[in-house]
């Protein structure tokens, strides 16, 4: 079980690195927003794995808050884009 947890954490860390590359490269602002949203989803998964590893169930509250904040951030970014705020891609 310990090896499985370490392996899945490593896979998710690698996924975070790949998403970070897209966040740096992303040719336009919507691409970066998509990468950020993937970030938050990955972090929810990582916190879930860590709560199994440490046997602390309270970490699940953090995942709920994380998912909620990611959703609100996506909505806010989309409104910002559609209203045509100042952009420097």
């Amino acid at each position: 079980m310990d090896a499985v947890i370490k392996l899945s954490l490593a896979l998710m860390g690698l996924a975070l690195c790949l998403a970070f590359v897209r966040l740096i490269k992303g040719p336009s602002l919507p691409d970066r927003v998509v990468a950020l949203e993937l970030f938050s989803t990955l972090i929810v998964g990582i916190i879930g794995v860590i709560s199994i590893h440490t046997d602390v169930a309270s970490f699940l509250d953090v995942t709920i808050v994380m998912a909620l904040m990611a959703f609100l951030a996506a909505i806010g970014f989309a409104r910002f884009l559609e209203r045509g705020g100042p952009r420097d891609d």
């Binding site: 499985v4 947890i5 899945s8 896979l11 790949l18 998403a19 691409d31 794995v49």
Partner: peptide, 25 residues
């Protein structure tokens, strides 16, 4: 549990590979 964890991690890695490799938004 281990199978679910590993397959979940692999799906997330696939999502990250997709966001890096696919051509448009």
């Amino acid at each position: 549990k281990g199978t679910l964890l590993l397959s979940g991690a692999v799906f997330m890695l696939l999502a990250a590979v997709g966001v890096l490799r696919l051509p448009d938004l």
